[in-house]
Simulated assay, not measured.
Amino acid sequence: MTTAITYQEPELVARLRQKEETAFRYLYDHYAAALNGVILQIIPDQALASDILQEVFLNIWRRIETYDSSKGRLFTWMLNIARNAAIDMTRSKAYQNSQKNRELDSNVDTNADNSTISQIDHIGLSKVIGQLKEEHRVLIDLAYLKGYTHDEIATLLQIPLGTVKTRIRAALLQLRKIVT
């Protein structure tokens, strides 16, 4: 009978910084599914999301020394790496060209099976987000579900960047009140 190894976050970080493979396997086993889910929200292509996930874990392995526990939890740090990697992929020319060159049938099938809307409905977020004002709902969708930057949202909606930031902050405060 084998006992499962568990780590407290500080110990896990210390072992990762020592480049211990068992700690890295533990990290992958416990966080890969969550990080993959974040990537899939931005890039609804499982094969591409898996490739990005592998790159994310390589980046975590290489950059673990840059993690600062005083700025947040390890999971939050990894989540930001995953989200940024997925967003970077959507901005790459290769990805944009591949999206333009997909056949219509594959676009329809992929979007029907893996749409953000169905994922949101699955976990109940659409009901919560639906309680927001329309102007807030649109911004949350663009920023957090579709991965747009504040600058891109300002350009897309043709509103000042400061207004975008203010409304997103207000939306997040409103969401906090709804959820708690």
Rank of each mutant, 00 (worst) to 15 (best):
M1H: 10
T2W: 14
T2G: 11
A4V: 15
I5Q: 12
E9Q: 11
E11C: 04
E11Q: 09
L12R: 04
V13M: 10
V13N: 07
R17K: 13
E21M: 12
E21K: 11
T22F: 11
R25G: 02
Y31G: 02
Y31N: 02
A32V: 03
A32N: 00
A33R: 05
N36L: 12
L40I: 02
L40D: 01
I42C: 05
I42M: 01
I43L: 07
P44Y: 02
A47Q: 08
A47E: 11
A47K: 12
L48E: 09
A49W: 04
A49M: 03
I52Q: 06
L53M: 06
Q54H: 08
E55C: 07
E55I: 08
F57T: 00
F57M: 04
I60C: 07
I60Q: 00
I60M: 01
R63D: 14
R63P: 05
I64T: 06
T66W: 12
Y67M: 14
Y67E: 11
D68K: 13
D68M: 13
S69F: 15
S70G: 05
S70V: 11
K71M: 14
K71I: 11
G72E: 10
G72S: 10
F75E: 01
F75G: 07
F75H: 07
T76N: 10
W77N: 05
I81M: 15
I81D: 01
A82Q: 05
R83Q: 11
N84S: 14
N84F: 15
A85W: 09
A85N: 06
A86D: 01
D88C: 07
D88Y: 10
D88S: 14
M89K: 15
M89N: 06
T90I: 13
T90A: 04
R91V: 07
R91G: 07
S92T: 05
K93Y: 14
A94W: 11
Y95D: 00
Y95S: 08
Y95N: 03
N97M: 15
R102G: 00
R102H: 03
D105N: 10
S106L: 13
D109P: 00
D109W: 13
A112E: 12
A112C: 05
S115L: 12
I117A: 14
I117R: 12
Q119A: 15
I120L: 15
D121K: 13
H122W: 13
H122C: 09
I123Q: 08
I123D: 09
S126I: 11
S126F: 10
V128M: 04
L132I: 02
L132K: 02
E134N: 03
H136E: 05
H136D: 00
R137F: 03
R137Q: 11
V138C: 05
I140L: 03
I140C: 03
D141R: 08
K146A: 01
K146E: 06
G147I: 01
G147E: 08
T149S: 14
H150Y: 12
E152P: 02
A154K: 03
I159S: 00
L161K: 04
G162S: 02
T163E: 08
T166M: 12
R167M: 02
A171W: 09
L172C: 01
L173D: 03
Q174Y: 14
Q174H: 09
L175W: 01
L175Q: 00
R176Q: 07
K177D: 06
I178S: 04
I178L: 15
V179C: 08
T180K: 13
T180W: 12
